[in-house]
Each structure stands twice: as structure tokens, then as C-alpha cells.
Design a protein around this nucleic acid. Structure first.
Length: 842
RNA sequence: GCGAGGAUGGCGGAACUGGUAGACGCGCUAGACUUAGGAUCUAGUGGCCUAGCCGUGCGGGUUCAAGUCCCGCUCCUCGCACCA
């Protein structure tokens, strides 16, 4: 049994739409002809750098990749047809834990010869084959694979140059330790107290680690001037950086130690009735009295063992211990007790606070819990003395008001603004500075970027430890420090670099004495922080970035990718670009001019696709069944791209039908009933130009779903026109060609096939984008609604040129409208040209 | 708790500066062609007590006119979360 017999209506097999055949054929032709290879030095057309986030080579291209990349491809193709020289490269974020974990697992199970490198390159090959069947116009000649020494060598160079400038440094700090992945993680990689990848509960450990000084760039990173980015991402980054303006105030312990606190409300200093130090604060041991020592040590011990999750779970109730020491408030010499509590974090500000229970809800709760004094210092507008009575307060007052009980600051207004924008805060800062007890200060929530990873499969950090010289960077001419391949993975997951003698034992670059290599590798976000520069010259052995090409092609004009990178990758990439600028490699400060985020594609059960849930939809199977063009069109049709959507198996049939109808417009078959259709050439021409206008605007705005809806409408109009006998007209033939061009970015294979079947020689993808003729959109008569007292009572056909009086006359004459106007007094008449007429009657 | 976004037919979703709510598609119903149809084509499809009335999460308001603007809520999603 063959298809031909099963489908007598459409004639020979050759005339049927068989996606599997034409898609392979065109993919091969495009490759052979180098259709998508970009000449970076071509300046005959304006350049456009269209970038989509490169994937981790998991070995399988899943629906999420398709959802991310197919619409990006359509937008890139559209841009190209509009006359730009579009660079649309692709590569692989090839370092990372999964491949190494697979090797560790194999070692545990006694399977030999599983190495992350081999695994990764195999997976890359497989994914590239899957990429091919997507029909995307990636220019693979610029491919970047980050685990290649020719790439990561430059990570090492950047690192050393950053070290020389103090932007990379080693420091002992409390870190997030992931016990499953056996490595530390950056703050950004810890979600709800758990490792982003492993999901393991994060432990706190004190370890020496390498950091990059992203905090030096905090203020510059808050500036999004000139960036066309979603507000959501800008807000998330702004919140993450968390700039707070305020003051540093120095309290003295009774023993004479300086205790520095940070506060955003120095104007409430007269209301500070106690101090709280973080349990890890270095002064705790020294200041604690003998009587309190046992209690304090117990509390410190307890908090140090709590995981982040435990601490959050206990956040409801305030806990803490008095350490038996007192401090002096510098503005009024009040003697105030010093406590420790875990609601004060060592990692923020100075790890110590002045507690103003009247003005801060947390301090208020703490004071109530432990019976500490509350002194009112801000009178809310209109508040009576009774309202300020500490005994009657139910919560802290952080809003605007006038300062009271505040010595020289009494009567000054706090207007609720932050920093010096509040007269009270400004006055407090000046007063503090005048008595030498503090100064204006800005603090950030952002921490320096911790890049050390205790894992093998990453860029080796190029430093050595020499007994004589200390920490020494590798010489630039010795780069790259290559990851040794002859390593044995241990079942424990511990990095094999730690026991690899040939790697470990090296010569000190400074004194030629014996030295040990650093065994930590770099966070893989380092790789993705500059890869778009490398696409421009992926194999340049002399320098990481070609300065001329970088000047010409960057910043990236359009960057697309998942919202999950709003903070991590996108913040690091911005930081790194600024560092590269300061190191003299590039002349730009921002890497990505425009940014668009796609949503997530979910399983049909509305849950995230995962093997364990069994709701994974495999694109390969769908492509085999429907063809890539149908899958592409469906992914773009499901809804707004930035919203994401649950997968549905039923909806995809609609796209298959649509493409079949387009096919039949060129090849024949599927004609409707001629007798019922009527359409003029002018109607058809209007439909075509309307579609050009709408599809163009939709694609510009990444509204793929409505673009396809318009294309369906155009297909419907062409089918109807054919049934109405217009198929022999130039208008119809031109309409079909326009449809193919407008559809080409979305469904590249079928449009290319049909374009050639129309007798064209060149590729449809090299055609220029159609432009609509406004004159073609003009209609002779418009349908207008007629309302009486706000309700639609009829419709009229009015000549386009009709003036207000003529339209009103037509409206009054409409049968049903006349009925409602009869015997009534018309109080108002409103005419919205081309839209409606509205009568108000009494 | 703070910040951002959202709620429209049985379903996914349209709707420009307030101007005929439900484009486009899925599903469903009927018909045509058929030995057959889960193919194709045609027509219909928000609800109801159907010359009309009611309908865009809920309650108010502005307006000739509100999915769209204003006030007050509810719920959902995402991000941050004891950040001083």
C-alpha cells in the first residue's frame, strides 16, 4: 500500500507535501552553497549581530531548545531579508558538571574510559545533527566550543590580567558548599538554600576562594541607559545589586573597641537602644563577658550549623543572646547593651547594626522579645504624644515624620525618601561627620563573584603556590594551563587534579623553584561572559578578540534567551564587558543592546518537562511525523513567545493543515467549491498588502503568533480568490509569491521548495522583504457601527469619503436605528470616522 | 512582607492612541465528496428566557462609549526576602 493510492485526490506522489524529503534536500543544498555563511568584512549592507544563548551540550536537543532557537532564527531570517548582513552564530557552553558527573558515575560503576572531554565532543556532534534538522540559519563556520584550550586559554589570560589589577583575588570566606556536587557555588547559584543544579542543601564553610571584584562595578551595572531590555530583567538586576544609601557610624565598646555599623537611617541614631552583632562578628569573642560566655558560645555554635533553609524556617521568631558588654552611642553617650542575633548577617554591611526598635520592625520585634527599651524619635504627621508611647506601639514606624528626642536634629523632617533626599538623613550625616563619629556610606547587597570550583571539568585557574614567592600567576607565554586528559575519576567526585602529580608539581614562574598548581577551576559562567566576541575570530591564536571586528560587530544588536539568566549570566556578561573595556580589549561598555526573553515550554500537564515526570515531548519524533516547518510554526503560534506555554499535541495539526494549504496554492489540490466564492482583484490585493503590513510589524515586535495568524488569513484569501477564478491573474500570482516570502522566516523549507516550483532560480531566503503599498489598503466603503445610548443598534456601509453629515444621515436611516430614535430627542451625535456613530437620546 | 507581570468562550490566544470583545487556530456540530475517513472542502460554534438581554477575576466609579482609564479587593505566576 502506498501513499499515492491512499490519496487519489492529490495525484502523483511527487505533488504531495512530504516534509521529510524536501527538508533534507534543502538543508543539504543550503550547506553546500554556504547560504548562511557570513562575510564579516562585507560592508555593502548594514551589519546586524543576532545572538541566541548557546546551549550546554547535554547530548539531546529538546523542545526547550527548539522553543528558544526557532523563533530567534525566524527573527534573524526576517532581519536578513530586510537587507542586513546578519551574523547568527552558534556554539557550545561545553564545560560543566553533568559531563564530569557522568564520568564520576562511570568510575563508581567500574566503567572505564568515560572522560568528560570525549563525552562532550560526542554530544556536540549529536546535537549538531539535531540542529541541522531544525533548519536554522546558524553560521557554523564561527562555532565556539568553550572546553577547547584555544578558547579557555583566554579565560586564563583575562584572569591573570584581572589579578594584576586587583580585580581577581583570593580570600577566605564563608561559602556555599554543595555536598552533592562537591564544590562551592556563587550566591547567584543558590536558590532557596539549595544548589541550583544538584538541589542539595547548601552548607556553610569557611574556605579560601578566588573572587572577581564585580562590586567595583556595582554603580555602573545599575545604569541601563540606552539598553533596550525588558523592564523585568533590569529590575531584577537592580534588586540583586541592592544599592543602599546611608551612613557608617562608629560606636565604641566600653573597652574602647570601634564597632562600625551601617545604617540607612542615621537620623534615628538617638533611638538606638541596643546593638546587634552577627554571631560570626570578629569582636564577639573579645567583648563577651565571662558570665555570658557559655551562652554566647552555645548560640554561635548553633547558628554555625544551621543551613540557610533552617535559618529561614526560623526567621519568624527573633533569637539572640546578650554578650554582657555595652557600647556608647556617639551622639548622646547613652550606654547600650550589645547582643548577637542571627538576623544580623556577617555578609552584609559591616556585620553589625545599631538597633532602633522604634523605627525598624525587626529591631522592634527583637526589643519586644527581650524587653529592651524603645525610644520614639520620629513623630508621624498628625500623631499625638500618646501615639508615641512605647508601651502602646504595635509596630515600628518607618514612614515620614518629624524628628523628636533627637537633640540637635529635633524638628527636622524625614520625608520618607532615601539617602540625602531626606532632610533628616542629610542633617544626620552632616552632624556625624562634624563630630567625627561617622560618614556617608553606600552599601550593596551584591557580593564579589566567587569563581573557584573544586571540580575538574573547567578552565584551570592559572596560578601557582610557591613556598618562596607565595601566590604567583602563570606566565602569559605558558598559557594555556591545559587540563590533563590522563586523569582517573574518583567515585567520591573529588577533583582528579588534586592527585595528578604531573599537573600539580610545577615550577614557580618567578623564582624557578618548585611550586604547586592551583587545582580549582573556574565557574563556567566565566566562559559565557565573553563568548560572543570570540565568534568573530574563533581560531585567532594571537589574541582573544579581534579589535577591528569587535568594533564593527559589537555590541550584539539582539540577544535572546531564557529569563532564568536574568541575573547570573547577563549580569556577569555586563561586568566582564566593562572589565574587557578597562583592560583595553574592546571599546564598548554594554554587550547586548537589545534583549528578549522567551518563556518556558511546559509539558501538556503544565509542569516543567522532565524525564521523571514523563511529560517530555521529543522534537525528533515530531519532526519525523510532521516535518520541521510544522513544528517551527506551531511553536511560534502557541502564544506570546515571552510567556511560554504548555505543549499540546492537538494544536499542531492546525499548522500542518495550514502548510498543506499553502502547498496546494502552488502545486494544486484541495480546491474548494468555486460556485460559492466571490472576490475582486482589488479585494485580493488589499488582503496581500494588509498581510505585508501586519506580518512586518508583528515580526519586528517578536509577535510570532499573530504574524502566523495573518499569514493564515492571507492563505485563506488566496484560496478563496482561486475558487473565485482569480488564479490566472498577476495579482494572485504575485500574492502567492508574497505569501512565500512572508512565510519564509517561519517555515524555511516548504517556502524554498515552492519558490523553486514556481520556476525561480535563487533562494527565497535571499529575496528582499516585501513592502506594502498604503494605496492598496484603501477601501471604498467602510462598515460602521451605530450606537444609541451606548448600545450597538445597527451597521451602515458608508463611502470612505463621506462627511459627518452624510454618515449621520445614513445612520439615522438604518432601519433598526430609526426605531430607537423614533420620538426621542437626540442630545448628542458622535462620529468616529471609519468606526462608529453614537447617538445619545433622551 | 517587598517588587514585577497576569486573570478574556470547552482550550491556546486576538483586540492600535477608550470606539462593533472573542482575530487566528484547536476542539465540537452539520453538510459535501466517499466502500471508508482520524484526508479534503463548505457552513456553524460566548451564554440565555433570542425584534431582546447578559457577558473580558470581584465590587465601585469616570465616559455617549471601558477588556482598555481611576479607586478598593480576590486569586495566580515570577523574582527578592531578617540586606540594617
Amino acid at each position: 500500500m502506498t501513499d499515492t493510492i491512499r490519496d487519489p485526490a492529490t495525484g502523483s506522489r511527487q505533488d504531495r507535501y512530504v516534509p521529510g524529503e524536501i527538508e533534507k534536500k534543502w538543508q543539504q543544498r543550503w550547506r553546500e552553497e554556504g547560504l548562511y555563511e557570513v562575510d564579516l568584512n562585507d560592508d555593502s549592507r548594514p551589519k546586524y549581530y543576532f545572538l541566541t544563548m548557546y546551549p550546554y551540550p547535554s547530548g539531546d536537543l529538546h523542545m526547550g531548545h527548539w522553543y528558544a532557537e526557532v523563533p530567534a532564527d525566524a527573527a534573524a531570517r526576517f532581519t536578513r531579508m530586510r537587507g542586513y548582513n546578519v551574523l547568527f552564530p552558534m556554539g557550545f557552553d561545553a564545560f560543566g558538571l553533568p559531563a564530569e558527573n557522568a564520568a564520576v558515575k562511570a568510575a563508581r560503576e567500574g566503567v572505564p574510559n568515560v572522560h568528560p572531554a570525549r563525552l562532550t565532543y560526542e554530544r556536540i556532534e549529536r546535537m549538531k545533527q539535531q540542529f541541522d534538522q531544525m533548519g536554522a540559519m546558524f553560521d557554523w563556520s564561527k562555532e565556539v566550543v568553550t572546553c577547547d584550550p584555544e578558547y579557555y586559554k583566554w579565560n586564563q589570560r583575562f584572569f591573570i590580567e584581572m589579578m594584576e589589577r586587583g580585580l581577581a583575588y583570593r580570600k577566605e570566606s564563608v561559602v556555599n558548599w554543595d555536598p552533592v556536587d562537591q564544590t562551592v557555588l556563587a550566591n547567584e547559584q543558590v536558590i532557596d538554600g539549595r544548589g541550583e543544579r544538584s538541589g542539595a542543601l547548601i552548607e556553610r564553610r569557611l574556605m579560601p576562594q578566588w573572587h572577581l571584584k564585580i562590586t567595583d562595578y556595582a554603580d555602573e551595572l545599575l545604569d541601563f541607559e540606552g539598553l533596550d531590555w525588558p523592564a523585568r530583567v533590569r529590575t531584577m538586576q537592580t534588586n540583586w545589586i541592592g544599592r543602599s544609601e546611608g551612613a557608617e557610624v562608629v560606636f565604641k565598646s566600653e573597652q574602647g573597641d570601634d564597632i562600625v555599623v551601617f545604617t540607612t537611617r542615621p537620623d534615628t541614631l538617638w533611638g538606638a537602644t541596643f546593638m546587634v552583632l552577627a554571631p560570626e562578628h570578629p569582636l564577639v569573642a573579645k567583648l563577651t563577658s565571662d558570665e555570658q560566655r557559655a551562652a554566647v558560645e552555645a548560640y554561635v555554635e548553633r547558628t554555625s550549623h544551621l543551613t540557610e533553609v533552617d535559618r529561614m524556617a526560623e526567621a519568624k521568631e527573633k533569637t539572640g543572646v546578650f554578650i554582657g558588654a555595652y557600647a556608647v552611642n556617639p551622639v548622646n553617650q547613652a550606654r547600650i547593651p550589645i547582643w548577637i542575633a542571627d538576623y544580623v548577617l556577617m555578609g552584609y554591611g559591616t556585620g553589625a547594626i545599631m538597633a532602633v526598635p522604634y523605627g525598624d520592625q525587626r529591631d522592634f520585634e527583637f526589643a519586644r522579645e527581650f524587653g529592651l527599651d524603645i525610644v520614639p524619635v520620629v513623630r508621624p504627621d498628625g500623631a499625638a504624644d500618646d501615639d508615641l508611647d512605647p508601651g502602646r506601639l504595635e509596630e515600628a514606624w518607618a514612614g515620614p515624620g518629624t524628628l523628636v528626642n533627637s537633640g540637635p536634629l529635633d524638628g527636622i523632617r524625614h520625608n520618607g525618601e532615601k539617602g540625602r533626599a531626606s532632610p533628616a538623613i542629610a542633617a544626620a550625616i552632616e552632624y556625624l561627620e562634624s563630630i567625627g563619629a561617622g560618614r556617608e556610606q553606600t552599601t550593596y547587597r551584591l557580593r564579589d563573584w566567587l569563581i573557584s570550583r573544586q571540580r575538574y571539568w573547567g578552565t584551570p585557574i592559572p596560578v601557582l603556590y610557591c613556598d618562596a614567592c607565595g601566590i604567583v600567576p602563570e606566565k602569559l607565554e605558558n598559557l594555556p594551563v591545559v587540563l590533563p586528559e590522563d586523569v582517573a575519576f574518583m567515585p567520591t567526585g573529588e577533583s582528579p587534579l588534586k592527585t595528578h602529580a604531573a599537573f600539580l608539581n610545577a615550577t614557580c614562574p618567578r623564582c624557578d623553584g618548585p611550586a604547586k598548581r592551583e587545582t580549582d577551576t573556574m565557574d563556567t559562567f566565566m566562559d559565557s561572559s565573553w563568548y560572543w566576541f570570540r565568534y568573530l575570530s574563533p581560531h585567532d591564536d594571537d589574541r582573544p578578540i579581534d579589535p577591528e571586528l569587535a568594533d564593527r560587530w559589537t555590541p550584539v544588536d539582539m540577544y535572546t534567551g531564557g529569563i532564568e539568566h536574568a541575573i547570573l549570566h547577563l549580569l556577569y556578561a555586563r561586568f566582564f564587558t566593562k572589565v574587557l573595556r578597562d583592560l583595553g580589549y574592546v571599546n564598548i561598555s554594554e554587550p547586548f543592546r537589545s534583549l528578549r526573553n522567551q518563556g518556558m515550554i511546559l509539558g501538556s500537564d503544565n509542569e516543567k518537562m522532565s524525564k521523571s515526570r514523563g511529560n517530555v515531548v521529543n522534537p525528533d519524533d515530531l519532526v519525523a511525523q510532521y516535518g520541521a516547518d510544522t513544528v517551527r510554526a506551531y511553536l511560534m503560534f502557541m502564544g506570546p513567545w515571552d510567556q511560554g506555554a504548555p505543549w499540546s499535541y492537538t494544536g499542531i495539526d492546525g499548522q500542518a493543515r495550514f502548510l498543506n494549504r499553502v502547498w496546494s496554492l502552488v502545486v494544486g489540490g484541495g480546491e474548494g467549491d468555486e460556485a460559492k466564492a466571490s472576490m475582486t482583484e482589488a479585494d485580493l490585493r488589499r488582503a496581500v498588502h494588509h498581510a505585508i503590513k501586519e506580518v512586518t510589524e508583528d515580526l519586528e515586535a517578536f509577535r510570532f503568533n499573530t504574524a502566523i495568524a495573518e499569514l493564515m488569513t492571507l492563505q485563506g484569501a488566496l484560496s478563496k480568490a482561486r475558487a473565485a477564478g482569480l488564479a490566472a491573474t498577476d495579482t494572485w500570482r504575485e500574492g502567492v509569491r508574497t505569501l512565500l516570502k512572508l512565510l519564509a522566516p517561519i517555515a524555511p523549507h516548504i517556502t524554498e521548495e515552492l519558490w523553486h516550483r514556481l520556476g525561480e532560480e535563487g533562494s527565497v531566503h535571499l529575496q528582499s522583504w516585501p513592502e506594502h503599498d498604503p494605496a492598496a489598503l484603501v477601501v471604498d466603503t467602510v462598515t460602521m457601527a451605530v450606537q444609541v445610548n451606548g448600545k450597538v443598534r445597527g451597521q451602515i456601509e458608508a463611502p470612505r469619503e463621506a462627511d459627518k453629515d452624510a454618515v449621520l444621515a445614513l445612520a439615522r436611516a438604518e432601519q433598526n436605528v430609526a426605531r430607537y430614535l423614533e420620538g426621542k430627542e437626540v442630545a448628542r451625535e458622535i462620529v468616529v470616522p471609519g468606526r462608529l456613530v453614537s447617538f445619545v437620546v433622551k
